[in-house]
């Protein structure tokens, strides 16, 4: 009898070990240790070939070199603007899907919204390049209509980068917004209307508080993805893009200055994490709930 329990116990431990092994291997070998290594890398300085000493030089360079600092702030600002624009565009869409469309129309519209995101970001960016470049479709159309004197270059502006970023991010905003607006009971809106609320007051006092979890989840994910985007800013912004991930790439791959690149990586990670944390604090939500929502 005692032996049977012991065997069962041993079996349970073996199963637990077998299930734990891949998870621990994944999280430690691919996430935790590489990031610790990256931290170590960023806090050292080469003094001779293959000789290093601990130092803050990499971070000092970031703060003393105006270019790096400028690109960092610029990336953060444009990402914040892109997030706000995405919310402004996605909200009416999510509202139409959940509240205005009748019957299967809502579901259909939702699927239609998702279609472009089955296609790779490279393809979508190619589309924007064909549309916006000087010899492209829109400049040609504008010139043809006489709105501009000859074709104008619509690529390589900050606005172009924003268009591309908003486009790429829409899905990640629409999905959580639809999720949170679906559960909003229409009778609450009707009641507020009957009691004399204006449309704006209903939006501010009923709709937005109810949708807050979805709004936060969407904004966090969109901001994070935008900040870490590489493809869209470099292709649509060209040499003027000055995106921070590009700095990381050039330090790591082009200049082979891994110490500096690691420091830049950590600064980007810090900003991204701070924003996620701030978003959660402001809306009083838990990390795990937000991630499951998206």
């Amino acid at each position: 009898m005692l032996e049977a329990t012991a065997t069962a116990d041993w079996h349970r431990r073996l199963m637990l070990g077998l299930l734990l092994a891949p998870a621990l291997l994944w999280l430690f070998a691919l996430i935790v240790l590489p990031h610790l290594d990256l931290a170590l890398l960023s806090f050292r300085e080469p003094v001779a070939p293959r000789v290093y000493q601990p130092s803050l030089a990499q971070y000092r360079t970031f703060f003393t070199e105006p270019l790096y600092w400028h690109v960092f702030v610029r990336t953060a600002t444009l990402s914040a603007i892109a997030t706000a624009l995405t919310l402004l565009i996605a909200f009416p869409v999510a509202w139409t899907i959940t509240k205005l469309a009748r019957g299967r129309m809502g579901a259909l519209l939702f699927v239609v919204c998702l279609i472009p995101f089955w296609v790779s970001e490279t393809v979508r960016t190619l589309g924007w390049m064909i549309l916006l470049r000087e010899s492209g479709v829109l400049p040609g159309l504008l010139a043809h209509l006489g709105l501009t004197n000859g074709p104008v270059e619509l690529l390589y502006h900050d606005a172009t980068i924003l268009v591309g970023l908003v486009y790429t991010s829409l899905l990640f905003m629409v999905v959580p917004l639809v999720g949170s607006l679906e559960s909003l009971d229409n009778s609450l809106i009707e009641a507020a209307y009957d009691l004399g609320s204006s449309g704006f007051a209903i939006l501010r006092k009923i709709v937005i508080p109810h949708a807050a979890p979805g709004i936060t989840a969407g904004c966090i994910v969109v901001f994070m993805l935008t900040l870490g985007n590489y493809l869209t800013p470099t292709l649509l912004g060209g040499k003027n893009s000055l995106w921070f991930t590009e700095q990381i790439y050039s330090q790591f791959i082009t200049r082979f200055n891994w110490e500096q690149g690691a420091a830049f990586g950590f600064l980007l990670l810090a900003l991204s994490t701070a924003m996620v944390w701030l978003g959660l604090k402001l809306s009083g939500q838990r990390f795990s709930d937000v991630m499951r929502r998206t």
């Binding site: 590489p34 990256l38 994070m224 990586g265 991204s272």
Partner: peptide, 13 residues
């Protein structure tokens, strides 16, 4: 919540 570029460089390093 880790940007893809950073996952890449940390694993590379």
């Amino acid at each position: 919540v880790i940007p893809g570029v950073i996952l890449g460089i940390s694993i590379l390093a």
